[in-house]
Amino acid sequence: MLVAAYQEEALIANTLENLAALDYAGLVEVIVIDDGSKDDTLARAQACQSLFAGHPRFSLHVERMARNSGKAQALNHGLTLATYDLIVTIDADTLLEPGSLSSIVAHLYASPPQTAAIAGAILLANPMESWSTRAQQWDYFHGISAVKRMQGNFNGTLVAQGAFSLYRRDALEQAGGWPDTVGEDIVLTWSLLRRGYIVRHAEDAVAWTHAPESWGALSRQRKRWARGMIEALAIHKSLLFKPRLSTMFIYWNLMFISIDLAFTLAFIPGLLLAAFGIFWLAGPVTLLVLPLAGLWNIVIFRIQTRMLRRNDIEMKKSFAGFLLFAFIYPFIMQPVSVWGYASELFGRKKEWQ
Rank of each mutant, 00 (worst) to 15 (best):
E9L: 08
S337I: 11
I298N: 06
I278F: 12
M248S: 15
W280R: 14
A135E: 11
S50K: 07
T83C: 04
S337H: 07
L288S: 15
S165K: 01
K71V: 07
A175K: 00
L323A: 05
L51R: 02
D204Y: 06
A211I: 13
I198A: 14
A342G: 15
G162L: 05
A43E: 10
A320S: 10
A45G: 03
G294V: 15
R168M: 05
M248I: 13
S145D: 04
L108G: 01
S100L: 03
G270M: 08
I144F: 15
L271W: 14
A175T: 01
W138S: 11
E213H: 14
W131A: 14
G270Y: 07
Y109T: 09
H107C: 07
D91Q: 02
S102R: 06
L2W: 00
F52R: 00
M333D: 08
A43T: 13
G216V: 13
T247I: 11
T264Q: 09
H142C: 12
A175S: 00
I332Y: 12
L123P: 02
A205M: 05
E351I: 11
A234T: 06
P269A: 01
I230P: 02
W131E: 13
A146G: 11
D35R: 00
F327R: 07
A125V: 12
G277Q: 09
W339K: 10
A326Q: 10
T41G: 00
R134F: 15
L192P: 01
E231S: 01
L295T: 13
P98E: 04
W190F: 05
T286E: 07
F58M: 09
G183F: 00
G70R: 03
V199D: 05
S258I: 15
C48A: 02
A47F: 02
V336D: 06
L233Q: 07
I250A: 11
F154G: 06
E97Q: 15
G283I: 06
F256G: 14
K349V: 12
Y109S: 08
W252A: 15
A25Y: 05
W208P: 06
N68C: 12
G294W: 13
Y251I: 07
S59V: 05
A217V: 12
L218P: 10
L19G: 00
